[in-house]
Design a protein around this nucleic acid. Sequence first.
DNA 1: CTGAAAGCGCTTACAG
DNA 2: CTGAAAGCGCTTACAG
Lengths: 372, 372
Amino acid sequence: MSPRPGSRRAVTVADIARAAKVSKATAARALGDYGQVSDAVRSRVLAAAEELNYRPNALARSMNTGRSNTIGVVVGDIENPFFAHAMRGISDVANREGYDVILTNSDEDVEAEQAAVDVLLDKQVDALIVAPASSARVGHLAAVGAAGRPLVLLDRRADGRPYDSVTVDNRAAAARATAELLAEGHRRIAFISTHDHPAGVYTPGDTITMSSVADRVAGVMEALTDAGIPSPEQNIRLDARRRGVEAVARDLLEGDDPVTAVIASDSLIAMTVFQTIRTLGLSIPGDVSLISFDNPEWTGITTPPLTVVEQPIYELGAAAARLALQRIHGERVDDAAVVFDADLLRRASVGPAPRAGAPVAALSETEGRNTP
Amino acid sequence: MSPRPGSRRAVTVADIARAAKVSKATAARALGDYGQVSDAVRSRVLAAAEELNYRPNALARSMNTGRSNTIGVVVGDIENPFFAHAMRGISDVANREGYDVILTNSDEDVEAEQAAVDVLLDKQVDALIVAPASSARVGHLAAVGAAGRPLVLLDRRADGRPYDSVTVDNRAAAARATAELLAEGHRRIAFISTHDHPAGVYTPGDTITMSSVADRVAGVMEALTDAGIPSPEQNIRLDARRRGVEAVARDLLEGDDPVTAVIASDSLIAMTVFQTIRTLGLSIPGDVSLISFDNPEWTGITTPPLTVVEQPIYELGAAAARLALQRIHGERVDDAAVVFDADLLRRASVGPAPRAGAPVAALSETEGRNTP
DNA sequence: CTGAAAGCGCTTACAG
DNA sequence: CTGAAAGCGCTTACAG
């Protein structure tokens, strides 16, 4: 006569204690593998547990120990391959140490992020890993420390706060990508990001609220300025989310003074730019050179394959989890601000800048089409 | 004098009760928003909570209510875009209803899956959504029901068990893809999957342990058989994980009787096949037609763009979460075995079968190369 | 090594 | 509507 689903009562320590004819404390000690228990009693208890199909209640255990063996993670969007890969890195390291991971998406919205952080804290996660939607609006993150739990920032820093973080040297990476284009003679180089910049257009001196994007813009600006390009900011576009990547790309490609090279801040943007270039009848890299951040496999099989800035994304997540675990265990932390390098992977989407005044459109007639 | 991190004691119901000069029960009622509380008392309690920065302990709450507001999810690998998208569907629906999601990767290993299920059950998740690594080895899933909690299978069924499930009609989809190729005159059509089939080669009558793959093979076999193709099983390859997709693709493409069309069981396989075809100097679809399961954005920008079987992956996850929630709430469930259709998206990677004996290699010299 | 008791932070009958 | 008490399933001092 099995109990109805939902009404079934779980087997508890008390049941095992009764079956093994010992006290609850002793049964619990054998079951939980702590304290002192004689071998004879232990095996009696474990036999009873086996017999009754005992399973510990992790919640009850956490209530006492104050440790939930769970790490909370807040990312922008798990559908984004960047976060999916980072998440795998986090999970692998966490699981290996006996921790589970609660995943939440913020959709890069600060309010949603705050709500997620609060709920995760309420659920007593032992640590929190978050990719903050804004490096400027980070006040709500103080709740993590106030609750006495470690916080590790993923991919983005928090302005003026010394939280642990694992990031990529985006400034250097962006500068390197820009230098690569400058070396090929490009002068009109665009950078496109979908990070929402309130001001619409970017003006030097502006604060860009997502540190990763801010760093990339700084790197591009730096390289451009060093090369003596006038008004280096004019082709930096941070309005691609609002206006749509295609519209922005068309602007840049079709204006009076069209760019000859584009740096895409992620591979989704690169994909749209790639298509837009095609649609306009232009060729890569004949008319336009293209570099993308991130290296999903497809970038290797397009025609031409894309030159990319490859970030060690899995490692980023793994390092964040490692840091969190160290903090949880109260270990000494050598480097509370881990910074990874990103490599420039040269493939075939970068070429010499087309000569000014060359009949670009004509050239592209034969080269720039899909051939289905 | 703030307490040291780690040693800080959280503010509890008892603290609030003391501050508001009411009993713990009353404070808890106001805080937890249940039972009866007078407006006057409620506002006094809430003011005290605000003042002391009270946050409920969700674990303690769960201990009493028996509900953790958490759903456990076990997928093969969150790095796989299929699961990343499904996960987003699950999260969105769950979060909207106030549930969090614990994510675990099984790496398609039954042992790891079982361990994950047990841990999630111990953590008192209110329901479990799992993509079982094997449709045959599912005994461990009985633990979910034994614990009185709902189980929903994602993407794959469990042989002979009536668990709730959300799947795609893979058989029909595979048959449709095959028919598309047959209609173009193809006779030697390959199907490649990385699902590990112990037997190595596929022989009609074999049991394929992952139901999604089994259904696809059945669909291909059915279409091929209906078309009167002899030995339709000869180009069905289930050894791609062990041997490597490229090696398998080369076999199929370079043998005495090379195939003229390939159906890839996922987009990662398609990517390698795509590259292999290129490497061999063959053209798509001139020499070889290619259809992939799944529709990641990159399949639209290759040259040529790929014809794909598009599965409603996000919806798959969302439906699984909806089902789980219905079961949690004890609602009536109309359809405990939700089956979605997958559409064939015609793009440009399918063309007429090349004439037998045509100088395939010569043709491809000029057509099949990357042009960087 | 073992047990009786108290406690983790809540919720839930049960009185009043 | 409010409160005192018991309880959720464990762990943790404290005795013995």
